[in-house]
Each structure stands twice: as C-alpha cells, then as structure tokens.
Nucleic acid binder design. Structure first.
Lengths: 334, 334
DNA sequence: CTGCCACGAGAAACCGCTTTCTCGGAAGGT
DNA sequence: ACCTTCCGAGAAAGCGGTTTCTCGTGGCAG
C-alpha cells in the first residue's frame, strides 16, 4: 500500500523562504518580531508546501503533547462513554486530544496500563475503582498531573470527582422503605469495586437505622446480562424490592423477572443507579439515582487544564445523585 | 501542585551502568549482542532508576507512535462506542493506543480534525458519513494509512468496512410488507449523512418493487429525543408502520407514540436499526436490523495493523445486517 | 566621527532515543 | 611473529522541532 509519506519539514520551509528554521519556528508560533516581509515569506512558503509542524517533534522539544489519557475499567460501559464524550469535547476546545484505555481484560494490570499511557501524554484522568488504596497512593506521584474519578476517601493528593453512591443508594432504600418495603435485595456489583463497597456501606447505614428491614445481598454484576441472570435469585429470595448495582443491571433484572412471570413493580420493585438515558425509556421506566456523567467529564477537564497550566485545580467535589422516581417502584402488594 | 517531574533519561542509565546510551538502547530493545555481564549491568541500572524510554522521543526517532486515531461524528452514539471499545481492546493487544475525536460540534471541520489528529499517530480509522466524496478523495493520501467506516461506494483507495444499510432497510420494509403494511413512514436521519441516503435508496428500491406501497419520509434525527419528537408527525401521517433511522430513534418514537395513546405494535409498527443492546430490552422489544459493531472495531484494527506493517490489508467488507424480528412489529389492525 | 544600544535573524544546543559508522583490541590463520 | 578478520561498544548523526546565545547591522546620542 501507499509508500509511507514523508511530511515536509521545517527545514524545507526555511530553505524555500530563505530563512533559518529558527525563524520559521518563530513565525509559526507567533513569536516573530521582525520585518513583516520576512514573516510573510515564511507564511507563503509554509502554505505552498502545505507545512504543519510535527506534533511529535514539537512535543519532544516542548515537553508537552497536548494529549490527556482517560483510563477506565470498561469502555463499553455507557456511564464511561458519557464521561469520555464530555471530556473529549471539553479537551478539544483547548486543542487537546484524549487517549483512551480500559483494563477490562486484566484488572490487575490497571496500574501498568495507567503508567504506560501516562507517559504518552500530559495528564491522566483515572477511574480505577478496584485499585487498592495502597497501590494508588504509591503511584499517584508518578501519574501526576492526575484527576481521579470515584475514589472518595482516598488520601491521594489529587483532585477527585466522585459520586456519593453511599448517600444515593441510601436515599433509594429510604424511598423503598417509605413505600412499605421491608424485605430488600441488593443485586451487587463487582465485589472488588470501590463503588460497590460504597453502596454496601450506604445500605448498611440504612439497615442500621431500620432494624425492621431485612436485606439480602445477591451476586450481580455490571451488565444487562448480569441483571437478567440475577432474576431467578431475586425471585427466590422472596424480597419485595431489589436495589440493582446500576441501571443496566436493573433493566436486565426487570426483564428477567418478567420473563419469569414476576411483574415489576407489582410483584417486585426495582431500582437502578446512574440514570442512563434508557432508564427513562424502559417499560416500566426505572426509578434510579441520577448521576451527572457529562458534568463529571467537563469538570475533569477543568481540573486537568488547571493542573497542566500549573494552576490550583478546582476543589474535589462529590456529586450528590438525584432521586428519579419512576415506574419501576411501587408499594408492595404482599 | 506537584512540580512537574523529570523522568530519568537514557543518559542517566548509561552513566550508572558505565556504558554508552547506544548500549542501553540496544539492551532495552533486545538488539544487544555482547557480553552478558554488560547487559545485566544495564538492566540493573534501568531497574534501579525505574527507567522506561520516553515514547515521545522513541516515536520521533522511530517514526512511529504506536497510536491510532478514531474519528467519528459523535462519540456519544452507542454504535460508535461499541466500535471504539472493540478497536481499543484489539489495538491494546498489539501495544497500540487509541486517540479519539468527534466532530459533533462542527461537521464542517471533520477534515481538519482528521488531518490534525492523524499527524499525532500512525494511522486513522475514520467514520465520516457526511464528508463529501470529493473532499474525502482529495484527503485520502494525506490521511493514509486509513481505514474507512461506512463509506460504501467510495472510490477512495483504502480498506473500507461498511454496513449494507440499503439491503438492511429493504429487508425491514419487506418484513413490514409481508405483515400487510402498505402505508409506511421513514423517520429519517440527518439528510447530509451517507447512511441516511443509503437507507433512502433501499426504500426507493423497495417501493419500486411494490407500487401499492405509500411511503412518506419524515424528519427525524439520531437520538432518543429525536424519535420522541417525531411521534406526533408519525401519528398524523396516518401510516401503519414506521421505519426509524436507528434504534435510538425507534425507542424514542415508541415511547412518544405511547405517550400520545398510540399503541405499538397494535396501532403502529416500528422498526429500528443497529440492534443496540437496549433494542432487545425495550418494551416492546424492537424489531431491528442487527449490525455487528464490535466486529467492525475488530476488523478495523486488523486492517490498521496490516497497513502499518506494510502488508496488504484484508479486503473491504460490507456487513449484511441480520433481521431481528421482535415485538415492535405486527400485522396492521386497520 | 565615534561609541553604544536595540533589533533582526542565524548558529547551535537541546529534547530523548535509535542507528549507522567507526575504531580499538582480541582471536585466528599462516 | 605478523596480518587479517571479527566483535563489542562508543561516537556521532539524525528524527523535527524550539530556544538560547550570538553576531552583524543600523540608528541615535554624545
């Protein structure tokens, strides 16, 4: 296939404009302070040769790549897609591009992946919910500038954006409680994930407040199929309501239950988490805790931009999920 | 915040191992052919200093970045997310990373974005359905190595992976026809998009074969909200079935219709396109044409890998959508 | 008329790594 | 004992830019 093309270099432009490469560089970067005619000659030569500086060479000389990494456990997860989309758009406005990677194939390599990709760019937005705190703490200096996603409570010295899963699921549980539910199931996420543990802690504080509640934790997962697979377990557990790890699991669960002849919300109420667009469009629509993923992407970029500019980044923030009461929850009928 | 750290360089390793940088380079790249003791000294020094070569400098010297760009109209579209996810995973296995960009904010900049991002990496996977053929043809040499997505019929000399939208929607229409539908609506996508035009052509060939069919084209879009917004127009058009541009539009449309008291599929049948996971989980589940997005991502990487290796890339292929008959279509009741 | 300064632009060093070229020394052949 | 050959490893030249340093020129003041 096509011979790998050799782009025109600064030296060629310099030769054609009969100036030195240094002058071309200055003109291209607006640092030129000399005769207008010279600048014009350079610009003309550059235009004629269709020249544009090599980002690679530029990066090496300048020590900056105008690239930021985005590392998540699983790119296929819609929640991350929304963050990525917003991050990419925000970064693009500042001329930055986003380099992506996920660690779904080997969670244990999360640190290695982050370290490797970090060297290719200026900063990293890292979502590593399963990374042990000690590992993260040891790596944070190597990875800086870094913005963390969903590591509430970390001692790492880095701006962090998170979702208050604990409070969010607590509110969902309270909602179910107020409807009259007393036997609840938690269809869990990956046990190693921090966000799963925050949900468990939220539920623990909830049950502590309500001794009359019986809560059973069931194996779940993160995907539609995981929710579908959990349906039988939920039915067999005899609960009147199930709190799913996220919306995907909730939607899968709802359909799994209906396949089994269990009606939602009449027989069993179901809640999700995230408020992905489909949560609203599902039948029944899913009661969930709404998480502002785009906002997360936008603010992640704000923090990154501040860090690479050497400024103080905005504060770490914890977004409070907003309860979206929809059709998948109702008072128990038995 | 943290002082921007200076990574250890090859020179420092060389000094510590008391060899030249050239030797360190050779050892690091497995090209060393000398005393084992020297290699060991280098490895030890590298380990002690926690050295790893700068990808930037390496890229400049080698003329390769081990990065591939992925440019699409809108990263938020689930179809692209699936492709990206598969592309990223495949590329990662070969040590490549994916750089992303979307042109949603300014479709006219599509070429500029592609050109810019292309310079940062070794190849590009480009999905630019709205780019005029003449523009694409003129840019293809600049962008090579390049793999195109969804540009069937392009004269560009580049491997291309596409979906046969034309045949796919034709089959969907035939399905509706066989159910007895004679008055159909097409809830269109962006008029400028090539994939919309292929759908229109597919429908044109369908109506040509069935003169008894009345087809009306309605303004639609690409998103859930676009589908929702089209509901009233579909109802008012008096058709018994609607072919939506994609699954998102179809799902939005189904819910919009039901909000208006129109039942799917009893009053109006609806079809989608893509077979995103939610199409199956919607109520009613969406009859659609299934498109293998992950496969597209995988094969895109195969082509890229071949191109950068200087090999002949696999053939361009056109994937045939597979009809998924589900609950959103049924015989007309009036 | 001389001396100083400002200014415009080039030479050269550098960013960090790879690779070709080169050279000194040891091994091997006669 | 001498010359050739080979081998291990360093010196140096890029890769394509940016930036500091330097220098020659022209203008202005003394």
């Amino acid at each position: 296939m096509a011979t790998r093309q050799r782009r025109t270099t600064i030296a060629e432009v310099a030769a054609r404009a009969e100036v030195s490469p240094a002058t071309v560089s200055r003109v291209m970067n607006g640092r030129f302070v000399g005769e207008a005619a010279v600048a014009e000659r350079v610009r003309a030569a550059a235009a004629e040769l269709d020249y544009s500086p090599s980002p690679l060479a530029r990066g090496l000389a300048l020590g900056t790549t105008r690239t930021v990494a985005f590392v998540v456990p699983d790119l296929a997860n819609p929640a991350f897609q929304d963050i990525l989309s917003a991050l990419s758009k925000s970064a693009a406005r500042s001329g930055y591009r986003v380099l992506v990677a996920d660690s779904v194939e080997s969670p244990s390599d999360e640190l290695a992946i982050a370290t490797e990709i970090r060297r290719r760019c200026d900063a990293i937005v890292l979502c590593a919910p399963r990374m042990p705190e000690s590992v993260l703490a040891g790596a944070i200096d190597d990875l800086a500038p870094i913005v963390l996603i969903n590591r509430p409570g970390t001692s790492a010295n880095a701006p962090m954006l998170s979702i208050d899963y604990l409070t969010g699921i607590h509110h969902l549980a309270e909602h179910l409680y107020s409807l009259g539910h007393r036997r609840l199931a938690y269809v869990a996420g990956p046990g190693t994930s921090a966000s799963d543990q925050y949900r468990r802690r939220g539920l623990a504080s909830f049950t502590a407040e309500h001794p009359d509640v019986e809560l059973v934790a069931l194996t779940g997962g993160v995907s539609l199929d995981d929710g579908l697979a959990a349906a039988a377990r939920v039915r067999d557990s005899g609960v009147t309501a199930a709190l799913a790890f996220n919306d995907l699991v909730a939607i899968g669960l709802v359909h799994g239950l209906e396949d089994l002849g269990v009606t939602v919300p009449d027989d069993v109420s179901v809640t999700g988490f995230d408020d992905i667009p489909f949560a609203r469009y599902n039948s029944p629509s899913i009661t969930t805790a709404s998480v502002p993923h785009e906002e997360l992407g936008i603010q992640a970029w704000d923090r990154v931009a501040a860090l690479v500019a050497g400024e103080e980044p905005g504060h770490s923030v914890q977004f409070q999920p907003r309860l979206e009461l929809r059709g998948s929850t109702a008072a128990p009928t038995r």
